[in-house]
């Protein structure tokens, strides 16, 4: 495992960056700045973010240059999951109690999650909100930020690195990583081990953010948490794709996603059944 490590908290999760040499203070500052820029755009938990502005006032908003890959992936996943994976679940999450104060108190009434076409349109650089849309990019945003942080490292000459944002892990450069697939109900246990090299592995499990029998992975078609799948893992070229696909595996049949994306996957059903892609660089303990 590369060392040394840089550890910090960002966007509500612990992060760890492993590199061959210690990061210089200029690189660390650049990483912190990149994360701050991302958060200021996409966080629905802060008052001064672009997403919060959109939630207050419908209209057309120009996004930073990092937005196209994120919205493009969201659109592909929205289509591949027949609308189940949507960036428009923000309001439903708030109503279930997953809001900026973590009230975790479900509201008595629920608002239907709007369809993409009735709420927003994306033209490649600007987003038009037709209603006060509460965007939530939680399905792929953290993975994307992992990619962006790795880009900052590469710009500073750090080409071999592992960026781990607690569930979203990207390996770049020489060597490979052996990664345990954590049992969703018992974190002292693994259900398998995979190897990744110059790719990302992202895990998703509802129990990471669960409250009062609810969790944060919502099916936009019902506005309710999913309950059929209890853990997913996706391995892809980027953490953006891997994170989004890990979420999509809660809603879509893997074959439907495989028709659209090049990736490996593992998922566990609530019944305990574990399934995985035909090609998997690793082992599942079945």
């Amino acid at each position: 495992m590369p060392s040394p490590s840089k550890q910090f908290d960002a966007i509500g999760a612990p992060w760890q960056i492993d590199t061959a040499e210690p990061l210089g203070s200029d690189v660390e500052a650049a990483v912190a700045h990149r994360i701050e820029l991302f958060d200021r755009t996409y966080s629905r938990f802060r008052d001064d973010s672009l997403v919060t502005a959109i939630a207050r006032t419908p209209g057309t908003y120009t996004f930073p240059a990092d937005a196209p890959p994120l919205f493009d992936l969201y659109r592909r996943l929205y289509d591949a999951t027949n609308g189940a994976l949507s960036p428009l679940v923000g309001r439903a999450l708030e109503e279930l109690g997953y809001d900026r104060t973590y009230s975790l108190q479900p509201a008595a009434s629920r608002t239907r999650v709007p369809d993409w076409s009735e709420a927003i349109s994306w033209n490649g650089s600007a987003l038009t909100a037709l209603t006060p849309a509460v965007l939530d990019v939680g399905a792929a945003g953290k993975g994307y930020l992992v990619d962006l942080v790795a880009e900052v490292l590469a710009e500073h000459g750090v080409t071999t690195s592992t960026v781990d944002a607690s569930g979203d892990i990207l390996h770049r450069g020489a060597g490979e990583l052996r990664v345990a697939l954590e049992h969703p109900l018992d974190t002292s246990k693994a259900i398998g081990v995979v190897k990744v090299s110059n790719e990302a592995i992202c895990a998703s499990a509802p129990n990471r953010r669960a409250w009062a029998g609810l969790h944060h992975i919502l099916d936009a078609r019902t506005g309710l948490p999913t309950d059929r799948i209890i853990a997913t893992w996706a391995i892809a070229r980027t953490a953006l794709e891997a994170d989004g696909l890990a979420t999509a595996l809660f809603f879509a049949e893997p074959a439907e996603l495989e028709a659209e994306f090049d990736f490996q996957w593992v998922r566990m059903h609530a019944t305990g059944r574990v399934e995985h892609s035909a090609h998997l660089t690793g082992e599942v303990f079945l």
Partner: peptide
């Protein structure tokens, strides 16, 4: 297992771990 990383986490796992 001998691994470099673990993929997955939960709010209460810190306490349990």
């Amino acid at each position: 297992l001998s691994v470099d990383k673990v993929a997955g986490s939960s709010l209460t796992s810190g306490g349990f771990n």
